[in-house]
Computed example of a mutant assay.
Amino acid sequence: MKKLILWIQLAWLMAAASQAQIAQEGNYPFVKNIKAYAYGIQLEVDAPAKMVCEVLEKRFEKATKKKSSKLKKKVMEVKAAVLSPVSTAILDYYYRVEPLGKDRAQVTLFLSAGNYNFLDRERYASEIAAAKSWLNELPAELETYKRQQAIEAQLATIKELEKEEAKLAKTEKKLARVKTRSVDELEELEASSRSLQQQQQQTRGMLSTLQSRADSARQQAGAALSSADSSLRLDMLARDTTAIDSTSKQGSLAPQQDEQLQQQLLQEQKRLRKEQAKLEKQMQKIEKQQQKLQQQQAAAEAEMRKKQLELEQLRIRLETEKAKLNVLKEASRGKR
């Protein structure tokens, strides 16, 4: 059984090794109006052409302290550079990156001693071998670059999520303040409403009292008139006409005073009714404000629940993304 497992593992390693790309040497197309073909080294890699260009540019700049520049079409050049892993001599390096699909590319590297005098295996075996070895390191560097990009993308995602989290938390606090303010305002309105209700009750009581006084005054006036009429009849029998006129004038004073009192009572009733109407309008206004605040409070509570749910979901997603980042970092450390 152990032998079988070993054979399977060996077969897997052999298959993996057979799939690994190794740089090849030969004559490859260069630039037609300069030199149609030149001796170079070619390698296929599992990465997008754009990424390969970026990694090669960084590799050359790091090793030679010189930036790549465009020669013709897709051919890049690094002029008069010392690439120590390849040679201590000053050479010109040219490379072309061609896409072979979405996630695959082909790299061709050319070395020149200057003036497009390209190095070949026959005359510069050690330089070509070193350049081939240097190019064969590219797939590993591409994998490192991919992992680094994945980590950076993950960090950017986490940063955006943290911003969104802070924004939602701020919104949540704002909604909480709105809710608290609405509660305070509602309490104030309720207090005002209670005060107005008390004033209305007092006004109604005063109106009732005035009405009672008016009714009492009318009754007294009626009684006074009846009494005056009886007195007049008796006096007419006992006295002369002059005495009767005098008594009649005295008897008419009571109705005049009563009429004045009734006028005063009516005016006071009118004033109190106006006051009551004013209080009722204020009550209606307060009721409308209460309804508006209740609606605002309900809307704020609904929005707050929504934001709390979003915040919870965001935090779960953030934890997931952080876990992914840790996995990527661990994988990156393991590869090193």
Rank of each mutant, 00 (worst) to 15 (best):
S231E: 15
R96T: 04
K173E: 15
L161R: 09
A302L: 01
R181I: 12
I158Q: 08
L71H: 12
E190A: 12
Q289K: 11
A49V: 02
T209Q: 11
T64Q: 07
I41S: 01
E275T: 09
A63S: 14
R194V: 15
E310I: 05
L175Y: 06
Q257T: 06
I8F: 12
E319C: 01
Q199I: 08
A17P: 00
I158E: 10
I90R: 15
D245G: 05
K50W: 12
I151V: 09
L109G: 00
D240M: 08
L314W: 02
E280N: 15
P255S: 00
E143G: 06
A156G: 05
L168K: 07
N33F: 08
Q220R: 10
K73P: 00
M236E: 14
Q21W: 00
V78L: 00
Q284F: 01
A228V: 07
A224W: 01
I8W: 10
Q250T: 11
Y124E: 09
F118S: 04
S87V: 03
R177Y: 10
T203V: 14
A221F: 02
D92K: 01
E319V: 06
T247P: 03
E190K: 09
M1T: 08
A38N: 02
T64C: 07
K306L: 09
L168W: 06
Q295V: 05
T180C: 04
A277G: 04
L328V: 10
D235W: 03
V82L: 03
L210Q: 07
W7L: 14
I316Y: 10
V327E: 15
S68V: 02
S69H: 04
K132Y: 11
Q220Y: 13
L234D: 14
A130F: 10
A105N: 00
V82D: 01
K270C: 03
Q282E: 13
A214T: 13
M1G: 14
Y93F: 15
Y94K: 01
A36I: 07
D215S: 14
T241V: 10
L43W: 04
L168Y: 11
Y116T: 05
P48A: 11
E61V: 09
L142Y: 00
R104D: 11
Y116C: 01
V97W: 01
R204T: 13
R121Y: 05
T242H: 08
S208R: 06
E61K: 08
E330L: 12
D245Y: 13
I158T: 05
S87Y: 09
S246R: 03
K278R: 13
Q294S: 11
E25T: 06
N136Q: 08
G205R: 00
Y94L: 09
L4C: 10
A243E: 11
K73C: 03
Q211I: 07
Q200V: 01
L109H: 09
E268D: 07
M236A: 14
D258L: 10
Q256H: 12
M304Y: 03
V75I: 15
E310F: 02
E160S: 07
R273S: 13
E268Y: 04
E287P: 06
E172C: 04
A23C: 02
E54R: 08
K159H: 04
L142S: 00
S192W: 12
D245R: 05
R147P: 02
T157M: 04
Y95N: 01
